[in-house]
């Protein structure tokens, strides 16, 4: 656990784990689960910057994910754009949107901010399901495969390497950001915004930057997952999905990048592990969520770390 605290130790450990995983989980389904964990983890790592470090809750991040996914679906599927251009445009478009709405939204505090992001996400998902001429409506639309300069990843294994690499990249970026002046300013904002402002930090600018970054993480993950799944539906942009993303961050442990990864893994694995329970699935899932937050209110990773430390001390 000590390794996790050093800057690159955790990253190396995770990279080693990611390298080994395909030999342990050989079949396409297990790799698919791994891929979905990675997709969610990338989003959660980005969202954690906003929730854990800037202390701002977003209940609309699935909207950014949905925009990324649909941008790739529409631009590649209906307008024959190359995949990389669609992906970059999606990321740039979402960044612009996030930037434009960030100022008025981030002026708000606490639950008003959550509300405004919820509204944004809702509007996105309504547009996606209503503009059926463009988006295929509530039933969604097919997305062509990802072709990058003539190369097309075939099968879960090829995709696994893409997602694993991106996840490591996302973590590396996030950690650099946390250690940067922006990260320090953010932590100051989280501690006491007024104090930070008095100390000369442009608090709104900090929050806007981190909001845009986390939105772009979601958009890129959305865009790639659309190519990977071959299909998009408005459900990906839904409020419930936004809540799920926030839950990943909080249950893993706020302000902990690896916590976000762990939370994403847990929230993705649970429905798969519980699928045999049939009608009891929701019941057990809700119970696990409640109990883990009651037992480890700071989240899984900080909780486990604390437990290990007290055991070592004893």
């Amino acid at each position: 656990m000590k390794l996790l605290d050093s800057r690159y130790g955790g990253l190396l450990l995770l990279a080693a784990g990611l390298l080994l995983l395909p030999w342990l989980a050989g079949n396409a389904y297990l790799l698919d689960v791994a891929n979905r964990i990675a997709i969610n983890a990338i989003i959660a790592v980005g969202l954690n910057l906003l929730i854990g470090y800037a202390g701002q809750i977003s209940l609309g991040h699935a909207g950014f994910l949905g925009l990324g996914a649909y941008a790739s679906a529409i631009l590649c599927g209906s307008y024959d754009w190359p995949a990389w251009l669609a992906l970059l445009s999606a990321a740039a478009g979402v960044a612009l949107l996030a930037f434009l709405v960030a100022r008025p939204i981030l002026r708000l505090k606490g639950h008003y901010l959550a509300m405004a992001t919820l509204g944004l996400g809702m509007i996105v998902s309504l547009v996606l399901s209503n503009e059926s001429a463009l988006t295929g409506g509530p039933d969604g639309m097919a997305v062509p495969g990802l072709v990058l300069f003539g190369w097309e990843p075939q099968g879960e294994r090829a995709w696994y390497w893409i997602f694993a690499t991106l996840l490591l990249l996302a973590i590396w970026l996030a950690q650099n950001l946390i250690d940067s002046p922006l990260g320090r300013a953010l932590r100051a904002v989280h501690g006491s915004e007024v104090a930070a402002r008095v100390a000369g930090v442009d608090t709104t600018a900090c929050k806007v930057q981190v909001f845009v970054i986390s939105a772009v993480f979601a958009a890129i993950a959305g865009s790639l997952s659309a190519h990977y799944t071959g299909f998009v539906t408005p459900g990906q942009a839904s409020f419930l999905h936004s809540v799920e993303l926030v839950t990943m961050v909080v249950i893993g442990g706020m302000a902990s990048t690896y916590g976000a990864v762990l939370g994403a893994a847990l929230m993705t694995l649970l429905p798969q592990l519980l699928s045999g329970l049939e009608d009891y699935e929701m019941l057990v899932f809700g119970l696990i969520l409640m109990v883990s937050m009651i037992v480890l209110p700071q989240g899984l990773l900080p909780g486990l770390r604390g437990w290990l430390q007290t055991r070592r001390a004893a």
Binding site: N27, Y29, D32, G140, E156, T233, G235, S275, E281
Partner: peptide, 20 residues
Amino acid sequence: YDDAGEAAKANTFVKRLIAS
């Protein structure tokens, strides 16, 4: 498997049915 009405879940479960 129960997809709970979510197409993304249906996609994963179909993979599971085929591969596992």
